[in-house]
Design a protein around this nucleic acid. Sequence first.
DNA 1: GGTGAGGTATGATGCAAATCGTACCTAGGA
DNA 2: TCCTAGGTACGATTTGCATCATACCTCACC
Lengths: 106, 106
Amino acid sequence: MDLGKVFRALADDSRRRVVAELAADPEGRERACGSFDLPVKKAARTHHFRVLREAGLIMQRDHGNGSAVSLPRQDIERHLPGLLVLLAEELGSGSRAGRTGSATAD
Amino acid sequence: MDLGKVFRALADDSRRRVVAELAADPEGRERACGSFDLPVKKAARTHHFRVLREAGLIMQRDHGNGSAVSLPRQDIERHLPGLLVLLAEELGSGSRAGRTGSATAD
DNA sequence: GGTGAGGTATGATGCAAATCGTACCTAGGA
DNA sequence: TCCTAGGTACGATTTGCATCATACCTCACC
């Protein structure tokens, strides 16, 4: 697992958002690619999913008509322990502060 | 602490190397800025240190004549638990095992 | 005071990445 | 069958970033 690819993938807000939303689901369910509310057009979205895939941060399953992504949690937790929690936390604090009294500005 | 800045900072090999080398020192000592063997000129090195500083990944102390950097370990461990271990590990495995052609980085 | 080494600031340049439009493909429903 | 919706492929454009050369600054040392 290439740390360079991983960090480059996560450097982009849209891509980080995708992984974070997947990580924030306690059930770890698959999500349709179109279900992410990204501020980009279709082509760019496809591009982002490709970058995430090549970094090993998502798995993509093709339905022909549509496709869905999910998180290889075991792989990620083994190679990048703590990362998913981190991303999920950022997501949470972005829309609402839920941390234990630590209001220190990020 | 801005995850975007952190990941963008760590997306660059030279910068990741700096943090990794600092993290790999069990003593957590300060290091002179010039003591890192980076394949770039002075100006680019200054730039990299600035990016790392603004991401909160290093502290820089100025001597007028020279300057030294160190790791705000507590801060990093609190906000990004596990990161330093990860980087130090990459450094260790990178120098021994054949990484994909990164020795020609210039 | 002069010199040299280490850093920084600034402007320019080249490359990689992000985005878009468009064309195309596949599946499902009218 | 035709139409529509979700994805992908490809080319073009733009933006951001890494890098450099150069000039300047600050200190240590002679």
